[in-house]
C-alpha cells in the first residue's frame, strides 16, 4: 500500500533564503509522526509549505497518489488541515463563528461532535476568541482544523505554553484521529507529548530530515537524541 502523504525533494524558502532543502517524507494512514529539531531547522516552514501558505520552489507532494494543489484553499479542500504555530485564530470572531465558518464536508466532525470532544468550548460559544484562555484558544484552533473533516492533520507546537491538563486533551485528540485512520504530523518541542502520541520520530536539521526512527527505538538511543537535539 502506498503512503497517504508522499513528499519528495521538497524545497522552499522566503525571499532569497532557502529554508527547506530537499525534504523526503512518507506518512501512512493512521500513523503519527513526531517532527523534532532545533529552532530554525525548518519544521514550521515544512508545515506551511505543505499547506500551500509558503510556495514550494521545487519538489513534489502527493496525497493519496494525486499531486497536492499549490493554492492553500485547494490544499484544504483536498483534505489537509493545519493547527498552526501561535494558533492564528480570528480574534474578533466568536467560538461559534469559528466553528460555523470552518465546517465543511460530510465526515464525522460537525460543530456538535467537536463540542462533545472539547466541552470546555461549549460554555464559551458566544465569546470572541480574543477573550479565551490560552488552552481554550488551542482547543478552538484544533476544533477549526477538525471541522474541515481532513484526511491529514498538521499540528505545529500545539502544547506551547499550555498546562499539562490541556496537553493531555491534545494527546487524546491526536490518538482519536489516528484511530480513525487520519495521520498526524506533529511538530513538537515537548518530547513527552511526541513520545505519547507518535509511533515514529523524525528529526530535521538545516531544512532536511536527518534521522527517522520508531518512537521506542528513538527513546532507547539517548546518545542520538542528544546529538541531534541537544537534549538527553
Amino acid at each position: 500500500m502506498t503512503a497517504l502523504l508522499e513528499v519528495r525533494a521538497l524545497c522552499a524558502g522566503y525571499a532569497g533564503s532557502q529554508v527547506l532543502d530537499g525534504v523526503d517524507l512518507d506518512l501512512e494512514r493512521g500513523s503519527g509522526l513526531g517532527l523534532l529539531g532545533r529552532n530554525g531547522a525548518g519544521k514550521s516552514t515544512l508545515v506551511l509549505t505543505l499547506m500551500g501558505l509558503v510556495p514550494a520552489t521545487s519538489g513534489t507532494v502527493r496525497l493519496d497518489g494525486a499531486p497536492l494543489p499549490r493554492r492553500p484553499h485547494l490544499v484544504a479542500r483536498a483534505g489537509v488541515a493545519v493547527v498552526p504555530q501561535g494558533r492564528r485564530l480570528w480574534p474578533p470572531l466568536t467560538v461559534a463563528e469559528h466553528l460555523r465558518l470552518a465546517h465543511r464536508g460530510t465526515g464525522t466532525w460537525t460543530p456538535a461532535t467537536v463540542l462533545d470532544l472539547l466541552p470546555q468550548l461549549a460554555a464559551r460559544r458566544h465569546q470572541p476568541a480574543a477573550h479565551l484562555s490560552g488552552g481554550e484558544q488551542q482547543m478552538l484552533a484544533i476544533a477549526r482544523a477538525l471541522l474541515t473533516n481532513p484526511r491529514l492533520v498538521l499540528l505545529d507546537e500545539p502544547s506551547d505554553g499550555l498546562a499539562p491538563a490541556v496537553v493531555d486533551t491534545i494527546a487524546e485528540v491526536v490518538l482519536r484521529l489516528r484511530a480513525e485512520g487520519v495521520p498526524v504530523l506533529l511538530v513538537e518541542q515537548d518530547l513527552r507529548l511526541a513520545f505519547t502520541v507518535c509511533d515514529e520520530i523524525a528529526v530535521m536539521e538545516r531544512g532536511t530530515i536527518v534521522h527517522r526512527a520508531a518512537t521506542a527505538a528513538f527513546r532507547a538511543d539517548p546518545a542520538t537524541a542528544h546529538r541531534l537535539l541537544g537534549v538527553a
Binding site: M51, G52, L53, R71, P72, H73, V75, A76, R77, A81, V82, P84, R88, L89, W90, P91, P92, L93, L101, A102, R104, R144, L147, T148
Partner: peptide, 12 residues
C-alpha cells in the same frame, strides 16, 4: 484578521 487561515479552511 488572518486571510491565510481563511484559505486554510478551504475558502478561496
Amino acid at each position: 484578521a488572518d486571510r491565510d487561515m481563511v484559505a486554510a479552511i478551504g475558502v478561496d
